[in-house]
């Protein structure tokens, strides 16, 4: 359904607003349903990624998701469990889902963690920055990739 040409158009639209550090090598390109290649040029750290995912003020993931986190008592039930996410999706697919899930599903309730445009009335403290920085997103992707069935 999401055709390659649509993806290319969206990729063009995305290039500006995506928060890419200037030292990054080539800008990210959407291929199919994935955003392959780390924009930071370094692999993410799964341990740091886990800490972000379970942190209710950083990743916020467990507001909506549940997952294999027995140490976390309060998990959401608004979306699929994160268990097995690394088996279902390639790292590139996970990256696109987190950077901008709206590309995959325009009506999704999951925030686009790597975008800061297209938003209305953002609070002063949060204005003009994405929810997660590119290196934090890489950490989260690296962690999700370890969640295998």
């Amino acid at each position: 359904m999401r055709t390659a040409s649509l993806a290319v158009g969206l990729a063009a639209a995305l290039l500006g607003p995506l928060a890419i550090p200037s030292r990054a090598a080539p800008p990210p390109r959407i291929e199919g349903q994935a955003l392959p290649g780390s924009p930071t040029g370094r692999p993410g750290d799964p341990a740091r990624g886990r800490a972000i995912v379970v942190d209710r003020t950083r990743g916020l993931c467990l507001l909506c998701h549940s997952g294999p986190f027995p140490d976390q008592p309060f998990q959401g039930d608004l979306s699929p469990s994160l268990a097995g996410a690394g088996s279902r999706h390639s790292p590139g697919e996970l990256r696109l889902r987190i950077v901008d899930g709206r590309v995959l599903n325009p009506d999704t309730i999951m925030p686009s963690y790597g975008r800061r445009d297209g938003l209305v009335r953002v609070g002063e403290a949060w204005r003009n920055r994405p929810i997660l920085a590119p290196d934090e997103i890489e950490d989260v992707v690296a962690f999700l990739a370890t969640l295998r069935d």
């Binding site: 209710r56 916020l60 467990l62 507001l63 909506c64 309060f74 998990q75 959401g76 039930d77 608004l78 309730i109 925030p111 686009s112 800061r116 297209g118 938003l119 209305v120 009335r121 953002v122 609070g123 949060w126 929810i131």
Partner: peptide, 20 residues
Amino acid sequence: GQLNLSCATCHDDLAGRRLG
């Protein structure tokens, strides 16, 4: 907001479900 949700998302569509 930065999380890009409307009041209706939570109170019309997701009422009864658990946020955290």
